[in-house]
Amino acid sequence: NQASVVANQLIPINVALTLVMMRSEVVTPVGIPAEDIPRLVSMQVNRAVPLGTTLMPDMVKGYA
């Protein structure tokens, strides 16, 4: 099963993503693939993302 990107903490809106904010985990439904974590660094989410939430492509500005 493919690992997805999961919030490692509350990720506020309009804050640049850092490695420490994200972890990889096998979850259902599948979200952004874990291998895209380096690409996500410095991008921003378009809504607050609670701890443990799977990041979906539509949550990250400029990802999709």
Rank of each mutant, 00 (worst) to 15 (best):
A34M: 07
K61E: 10
K61W: 12
R39W: 07
T18A: 09
R47C: 07
E25Y: 06
M21H: 08
Y63L: 07
P38N: 11
N8D: 09
S4R: 01
M43Y: 10
E35V: 06
M22A: 00
A16D: 13
I37F: 03
D36Y: 12
G52F: 04
V26S: 10
G62L: 09
Q9Y: 09
P38K: 11
S42F: 10
T18I: 06
V20F: 15
G31P: 00
T54V: 08
Y63W: 13
A34G: 09
V30R: 15
N14P: 00
N1V: 15
N14W: 08
N46M: 09
L55K: 01
E25A: 15
M22V: 07
I32T: 03
M21P: 00
K61N: 14
E35R: 11
A16V: 08
M21Y: 05
I13S: 14
M22H: 01
G31N: 00
V27Y: 03
S24Y: 07
P12Y: 04
V5A: 09
N1F: 15
N8R: 11
M56Q: 11
V45M: 10
V41I: 11
P38M: 10
N46Y: 09
V6S: 02
V27A: 06
V6P: 01
V41Q: 06
N46W: 09
G31S: 01
G31H: 01
Q2H: 15
D58F: 14
S4M: 02
L55D: 02
V41N: 03
N46L: 11
R39Q: 11
V5G: 00
M21I: 03
I37M: 15
T18N: 07
L17T: 00
M59S: 05
A16P: 11
P12S: 13
I11A: 01
V60P: 01
T53W: 10
A16I: 12
A48P: 14
D36P: 00
N46F: 10
G52I: 03
M56H: 08
L55Y: 02
V30Y: 10
D36G: 05
V27D: 01
A3F: 09
V5Q: 02
N8E: 07
Q44S: 11
M43P: 00
G31A: 03
I37K: 05
V6L: 07
A48E: 15
R23Y: 07
M21F: 04
R47W: 06
P29F: 04
G52W: 04
A3I: 09
M43E: 05
P50V: 06
A48D: 15
N8G: 09
P29H: 06
G52L: 03
Q44G: 05
E35F: 10
I37A: 09
A3C: 06
Q44W: 05
N14G: 15
A3P: 13
R47T: 13
T53F: 09
V20A: 15
V45K: 00
A34K: 06
L10N: 14
I32D: 01
L55E: 01
T18R: 15
A64W: 07
P50H: 09
M22R: 00
N1T: 15
P33Q: 06
A7C: 04
S24H: 08
Q9W: 05
V49G: 01
P38T: 13
P29I: 05
Y63H: 06
E25I: 08
Q9G: 05
L17C: 02
P29T: 05
V45H: 00
M56N: 05
P50F: 06
A3G: 10
V49A: 05
M22C: 03
L51V: 12
A16K: 11
Q44C: 05
I11T: 00
Q2A: 09
L40A: 00
L19C: 06
R23M: 05
A48F: 09
D36W: 10
N14A: 06
V15K: 12
P33R: 09
V15F: 09
I13Y: 13
E35C: 05
V5P: 01
V45D: 00
Q9S: 12
T28W: 12
P12C: 05
P29S: 04
G62T: 05
A64Y: 08
P50N: 08
V49N: 02
V49Q: 02
A34V: 07
T54K: 04
V15I: 15
L19T: 11
P57E: 06
P50L: 07
I32P: 01
I13L: 14
V49F: 03
V15C: 06
L10Q: 12
I11H: 00
R23C: 05
E35I: 12
V27K: 07
A34S: 15
D58N: 12
M43Q: 11
A7H: 01
L10P: 13
I32C: 04
